[in-house]
Nucleic acid binder design. Sequence first.
DNA 1: ATAAAACCTCAAGTTTACTTGAGGTCAAGA
DNA 2: TCTTGACCTCAAGTAAACTTGAGGTTTTAT
Lengths: 153, 153
Amino acid sequence: MKTESQFCGPADLSVGQVAARSGVAVSTLHFYETKGLIASRRSPGNQRRYSRDVLRRIAIIKVAQRIGIPLSEIRAALDRLPNGCVPTAKDWAELSAAWKDDLDRRIETLTRLRDHLSDCIGCGCLSIDACRLRNPGDEQGSQGPGPRFLEAN
Amino acid sequence: MKTESQFCGPADLSVGQVAARSGVAVSTLHFYETKGLIASRRSPGNQRRYSRDVLRRIAIIKVAQRIGIPLSEIRAALDRLPNGCVPTAKDWAELSAAWKDDLDRRIETLTRLRDHLSDCIGCGCLSIDACRLRNPGDEQGSQGPGPRFLEAN
DNA sequence: ATAAAACCTCAAGTTTACTTGAGGTCAAGA
DNA sequence: TCTTGACCTCAAGTAAACTTGAGGTTTTAT
């Protein structure tokens, strides 16, 4: 409140300010920086200074995370943006369109799973080789972290 | 193939056999056992012996995982079953009904997110405080592992 | 009787996405 | 000036769900 530049210009933001405005912890901002998701300049005293674009970038990151995109992919997507580190509305349009497809696929997968589940409720058919629920086929359903078990058939 | 008991009775299974039939790795079976998800008897030589029910139990675990239920909850659900360690068709009906609700909720959340995303594609509205995408509200979207950031507003 | 395949235990490693802590620096108000 | 509060850098911890490895025992097939 006190250090905000009087005229509402593009004054740089400190980590604390970015944290407050974006809703992510300071430690997370540090972390994102090490992961190459955001960047910062330094003040004479070696403190991080962000331009306001970082807020938009973080917004994009958070949306992507809610969709279920891992940080590595988010980073890759942001890296592919032609406009350096300032995502434009057009960039956002492209990203969000791609991610929407991703989301569509996830929703479809889960919906299919749900339908099978409905079919199987109460039927007791959960046999190892017969039930469709047991044999994923196209439905991947991998969204945890860590090494995933590769279904080997 | 060779050691299967001749008459197709309820002969106990070794870890390797369970692994082969269920599609999960031996190490995973060990792991599930330490987590209390499955149980085993021991042979005179201290090797694990499973009754066939374990296959059904594993089937249930895998379905639940695909739905997105964490192992801890799966364990809790299985523990709550009245019938000891052999889930009956009725048990399965109850579990799957509960999990279907869970799945329904997840699908709804993602669908809502997708709709917002569609609204926002190209509009460039991704401003920190205005956009609905940025302000989760009811949509939790937490499905990663590890400590989650608690949205503090 | 043996050799090879399958098991056993326990400790430690892996990935993702962060957080916590220690030990020290910078900036701003009283 | 001095005392906070905000920052900085590393290193290490956390949680989930497993995997890998070392060192040793059982089974099983020959």
